[in-house]
């Protein structure tokens, strides 16, 4: 099979084809993770493209992406597998006659029980096994990319369970025996760092911290994803976002918000970043009321007493 991930340069190029602009750092670490067969733990602020990275890897390698979204209270039955109890029950009801036929001829209770035991496998077979993402990734015939999203939102106990799965990619279903992965999936875990992950989990992963991009990187992303935005306006927009990020905010705008904003600018057919456009679209970029007020005060309409008229002059393009 033609492996698109045979060198860091190829990694970078093929991620680029998926419209994901990878820095050298990201490309190198993705390459290492795939070579060493280790899960990749990515951390960073929300919206810098952690999930996007997993999608791009899946796209570049042509593998299926299996996603497990974590949340508080997520447990094994939601993540691994579940017996379809009601389906089993339905089948026993519908097959009652058939069962009677099978069991009816037996002489003693013991014989009937033995016969039933022989048929037991029917009810605990793959037919009634409801595969959840983890088991799907393990049983899949093709190599896959397994994305475990926002692992920090799951409980500590789920993390402990995940460790077992990640260490040797096999699970035991008591009724079926041990199921081992045919192909090791490429595992990407993302975390927003809302809580400390356990040492054991970190030890098993390669670590990649994705920070807010630099001006050039972000501009490249915007140009790539929103090609309709004029280069000049894109430059101005990204400069504005970078400036917002450097101020103290409750939630700094991330790349995904920059892209939303760029799309909004295209939709509004904006020619330049004048005061009115900024006023109208600011809420796409900044999500907290307090932050909006602050941004408005600082960048759009500075208080007249101290404000310099050229402060927003540069945005109006004059």
């Amino acid at each position: 099979m033609n492996n698109p991930f045979e060198s860091t340069g190829r990694v970078k190029a093929s991620l680029n084809e998926q419209k994901y602009i990878a820095s050298d750092e990201i490309a190198t670490i993705v390459f290492l993770a795939q070579k060493l067969g280790k899960p990749l733990l990515t951390e960073g602020p929300a919206g810098v493209g952690k999930t996007e990275l997993a999608k791009a890897i899946a796209g570049a390698t042509g593998r299926e992406l299996i996603r497990l979204q974590c949340y508080e209270g997520l447990d094994e039955s939601k993540a691994l597998y579940e017996w379809e109890y009601s389906k089993q029950l339905l089948y026993t009801q519908l097959l009652r006659d058939k069962l009677n036929d099978t069991l009816g001829k037996s002489e003693s209770l013991a014989e009937a029980a033995d016969k039933l035991a022989k048929e037991e496998d029917v009810f605990f077979s793959n037919r009634f096994l409801l595969q959840r993402p983890l088991l799907r990734a393990i049983l899949c015939d093709q190599p896959t990319v397994l994305l475990i999203d926002e692992i920090d939102r799951a409980d500590a106990e789920f993390e402990a369970f995940l460790l077992e799965v990640l260490s040797d990619f096999q699970v035991s279903v008591p009724e079926l025996g041990t199921l081992t992965a045919k192909h090791r999936p490429f595992v990407v875990l993302t975390s927003n760092n809302t809580r400390e992950l356990s040492e054991a989990l970190k030890r098993r992963c390669l670590y990649l911290f994705i920070d807010y991009p630099t001006l050039q990187e972000e501009l490249a992303v915007v140009r790539l994803k929103v090609p309709d935005l004029s280069p000049k306006l894109a430059q101005q927009a990204v400069e504005f976002v970078q400036k917002l990020r450097s101020t103290e905010m409750r939630k700094s705008p991330s790349i995904s918000e920059t892209l939303d904003w760029a799309n909004a600018l295209v939709a509004l057919n904006a020619k330049s970043l004048d005061k009115q456009t900024l006023e109208d679209t600011l809420s796409v970029l900044v999500k907290h009321e307090a932050d909006i007020q602050k941004a408005r005060r600082q960048f759009i309409a500075p208080p007249p007493a101290r404000g310099k008229p050229d402060e927003f002059g540069r945005f109006s393009g004059n």
Partner: peptide, 23 residues
């Protein structure tokens, strides 16, 4: 071993991603 030591930046990244797991 995998990345070699010719490229200093690759070398640094391979050490960093394997040794450092905390921001």
């Amino acid at each position: 071993d995998l990345m070699g030591i010719q490229d200093r930046n690759h070398f640094r990244l391979s050490l960093r991603t394997t040794l450092i797991k905390d921001l």
